[in-house]
Design a binder for these strands. Structure first.
Lengths: 340, 340
DNA sequence: ACAATTGTTGAAAGCGCTTTCAATGATTGT
DNA sequence: ACAATCATTGAAAGCGCTTTCAACAATTGT
């Protein structure tokens, strides 16, 4: 396997010159550069990653710690995010280093030993320990989402509050007054933001929210089913659902159907749609009204942001909240007159 | 930031001894080791990853190239696989390096520059170029699946042929003669294996397979819907479906319902169930008969296998095919008498 | 009591790059 | 024509570790 030394010898040049030629330094003669490039190509030379990392101090890699739960439940959104993120990062010649064991020490260790140049933190909680740890280490990171802290940090987030405000408002305007909320896990910021939007809309209409109508849980089909069931068994059952993800909606839909109810008539649904590539809301039997923000956009944008951060862009220029579209389709309508 | 040199100076020892103490060499005095370990802890010392990699020649990382398509369609199974894989790999102090750009050069480059010690190849095609490339480089890899090559290689695969043979046989025994196959993309080995099982069962019953009943495509909800529709519009429509994944089944189910048909009565369904954590077959309205092989098992097992491979276990001991359970629930029954 | 062994440590040579600094010859300005 | 600049290159230090080899004291065997 060719290394720099053998390549230099082969060319009758010093390692320094060869290295410079390969790394596009302007100080090297054009003819020499060409000669080096050709030889490198011919001998199939590639600089050793570890040596380069040691010499430069850069890893050219971004870390992501797998957001796993005890039961190894995997958020299907994660795959879409990761795909877009990885693809974009590749355009910067960076790759993604994944690891499990989601605790603060993991971040600290990774930061210290130079395995990665930065981190992406996903699904932040209100007071997220990871942010505290990385801030103290002064190690670059971008948060996918926001949290409640005074520490400065870069983030990409969608306007969850606004999205669920809009969605709730639409339902209220249609005349719904009992709106079930099938939210994500309670400790996650995005769920909190969505609840805030839901609450704000109610306030604006002079309504109080009802605790029984608000459910928090992991976003799976199964939980969608269970919580929809619980909601539909209430004496004063809701006439509309607000779902936090398409998979939850699949579950809710299942329960709704079992009860012989019809979406868009007996019960309205608005779901948040992350644009999952394998489960599209356009394709539900009843075309779903959605708040839409493709999670792949987040992956792509965050890749760019974390690279910018590492290259020196100040944090306050790396704080982005994108609006969320409300797309009205046929799963929403005015509520039926209340049951006898 | 403490490095080996400063730690050694602090202790009044040589770097060599400190390094040995830290790396559990038996030749170092017990008292010394304790002293070193304590100091390392106190000074929060962690060996630099790049330096260590350069010195040892190991990266302690396994590469996975994102199996993306042009349209960035992400297989939701991938998330579950990756989670299990990453978690298991962490127990060996290895992490996962993800990259995009799925072409042979990517593998070659990664192997050469020492970014990873091995690869996992997923979703192999019959004559997979990646296997040829890595074999020629003599670079360690484990295939998730099998392919048609004379080259020796390690693999973990489920018995796709047997699973779909069993499933088909069950349907045939129930009296079905027209069985729609909603298979994965045609160029993938697992789809081929499943088709083989489907065909073998037909042969055993003295039946010929019908091309119109066999569909190949990406495994999404949307395609499930479309192909189910196509099948159900046939003059001589099938009385049973064999689906390659739960998501496909969700789509098929949607179409079936739209046509006012009932699963388990009007039409039988068997689906392959990878045990996706966010979409469980137990939870379908009609409990689904499935061929079941949790994809997380693959992730866990392959992590172990690739580490074993790197550590010297011979390839012929790293070839595993696991059986697939056929779990009969209520989505399968004898066909109704044919329509008038 | 002397050689042979064992246990423990340190010096130093890498691993394969990047980058600083100095050196060289060629070019320019006056 | 001589100093000053420029373009190009090489020598060598260093990144922070691991590991070989030699060194030494302490122990053992005979």
């Amino acid at each position: 396997m060719a290394n720099l030394k053998s390549l230099a010898e082969h060319l009758g040049l010093s390692q320094a010159t060869v290295s410079r030629a390969l790394n596009n330094y302007s100080t090297v003669n054009q003819a020499t550069r060409t000669r080096v490039l050709e030889a490198a190509q011919k001998l199939n030379y590639r600089p050793n990653s570890s040596a380069r990392r040691l010499a430069t101090g850069r890893a050219d890699a971004i870390g992501i710690v797998l957001p796993h739960h005890d039961d190894l439940l995997v958020d299907p959104h994660f795959a879409d995010f990761l795909a877009a993120f990885t693809k974009k990062l590749a355009t910067y010649d960076n790759d993604v280093v994944l690891t499990a064991a989601d605790n603060p020490q993991t971040y600290q260790r990774f930061a210290q030993i130079g395995k990665v140049d930065g981190f992406v933190i996903s699904a932040p909680k209100a007071h997220d320990e990871r942010i505290a740890v990385l801030s103290k280490l002064n190690f670059p990171f971008i948060v996918h989402g926001r949290c409640e802290t005074d520490l400065p940090y870069g983030f990409y987030d969608i306007d969850n509050e606004g999205a669920f405000y809009d969605a709730t408002k639409l339902l209220l305007e249609l005349g719904h007054t009992r709106i079930g909320l099938l939210n994500g896990a309670a400790d996650l910021m995005f769920a909190k933001q969505r609840l805030d939007g839901y609450t704000r809309a109610h306030k604006e209409f002079g309504l109080k929210t009802t605790p029984q109508l608000i459910h928090h849980d992991h976003m799976t089909e199964e939980y969608g089913y269970r919580h929809a069931q619980a909601l539909l068994e209430l004496d004063d059952r809701p006439t509309a659902f607000l779902c936090s993800s398409t998979l939850v909606t699949v579950g809710a839909q299942r329960r709704i159907r079992e009860m012989g109810l019809e979406i868009g008539k007996d019960i309205s649904i608005i779901t948040h749609d992350d644009g999952l590539s394998s489960l599209k809301t356009e394709n539900f039997s009843v075309a779903l009204t959605v708040t839409r923000a493709p999670i792949r956009d987040a992956g792509t944008e965050i890749a760019k942001m974390v690279i910018d951060l590492i290259r020196g862009t100040p944090i306050d220029q790396l704080q982005k909240v994108v609006p969320v579209d409300l797309i009205v389709r046929t799963s929403t309508s005015a509520p039926k007159r209340s049951r006898s």
